[in-house]
Amino acid sequence: MPQIAQAAETFSSQLFWLLVFFGLTFFVIGRGMVPRVMETVSMRDKQISDDLAAAQLARDHADAEEEAWRERENANRAAAHDLVVKAKADAARKSEQHLAEAQERLDTQLAEAEQRIETARTEAMNEVEMVAADAAQDIVRRLAGVEVSRPVATQAVKESLAHG
């Protein structure tokens, strides 16, 4: 069979060209293109890691800024609370002062009113004693027909009022 006899020549020629083609392909792609692709992938990985590092740095910076803002906000709230407490204390102190002044005025007015009442009571008692002494003098003169002096009648009325 002649086809079988040619198979060795055909296969050796095809095998030679197959090895040449794959060898050439290996050197062009394997030695030329693959290193460039790997370099591109490596640069891309480096860019991604750099971007992630920059993002983490920005996040850390933002967290620090937020913490500083929270501290300032808490300090401002504390200062506002202190102002409110101070304002309440001032208002309470002023209110107590006004109440003390009003109480002092009321106490003064009450003392003056009590003094006026005491004076009026004393005057009324003196007038009652005078009327009672006049009435006693008149009653003794009419009933007993005896004339009683003013000082004696006044003394008798005072004694009677002191016991009664």
Rank of each mutant, 00 (worst) to 15 (best):
residue 16 F to Q: 05
residue 16 F to R: 01
residue 16 F to M: 03
residue 16 F to P: 00
residue 16 F to I: 01
residue 18 L to R: 02
residue 20 V to N: 08
residue 20 V to C: 07
residue 21 F to Q: 04
residue 21 F to W: 09
residue 21 F to E: 12
residue 22 F to S: 08
residue 22 F to N: 02
residue 22 F to E: 09
residue 23 G to T: 08
residue 23 G to E: 13
residue 23 G to D: 15
residue 23 G to L: 15
residue 24 L to N: 06
residue 24 L to F: 15
residue 25 T to E: 13
residue 25 T to W: 11
residue 26 F to A: 13
residue 26 F to W: 14
residue 26 F to L: 12
residue 26 F to N: 05
residue 26 F to Y: 15
residue 27 F to L: 13
residue 28 V to N: 00
residue 28 V to G: 00
residue 28 V to L: 12
residue 28 V to F: 06
residue 29 I to G: 01
residue 29 I to A: 09
residue 30 G to W: 10
residue 30 G to V: 06
residue 30 G to D: 12
residue 31 R to Y: 06
residue 31 R to L: 10
residue 31 R to S: 02
residue 31 R to P: 00
residue 33 M to D: 11
residue 33 M to T: 08
residue 34 V to N: 01
residue 34 V to K: 00
residue 34 V to Q: 04
residue 34 V to P: 00
residue 34 V to E: 10
residue 35 P to D: 15
residue 35 P to H: 10
residue 35 P to Y: 14
residue 35 P to A: 11
residue 36 R to A: 13
residue 36 R to P: 02
residue 36 R to G: 07
residue 37 V to R: 01
residue 37 V to N: 02
residue 37 V to T: 06
residue 37 V to D: 07
residue 37 V to G: 01
residue 37 V to Y: 10
residue 37 V to Q: 07
residue 37 V to A: 10
residue 38 M to F: 11
residue 38 M to V: 11
residue 38 M to T: 04
residue 38 M to C: 03
residue 40 T to Y: 06
residue 40 T to W: 12
residue 40 T to I: 10
residue 40 T to V: 05
residue 40 T to Q: 08
residue 41 V to E: 14
residue 41 V to N: 10
residue 41 V to H: 05
residue 41 V to A: 14
residue 41 V to S: 10
residue 42 S to L: 08
residue 42 S to R: 04
residue 42 S to C: 09
residue 43 M to E: 12
residue 43 M to A: 07
residue 43 M to N: 03
residue 43 M to F: 05
residue 43 M to G: 02
residue 43 M to W: 05
residue 44 R to C: 09
residue 44 R to L: 14
residue 44 R to H: 08
residue 45 D to I: 06
residue 45 D to P: 00
residue 46 K to W: 09
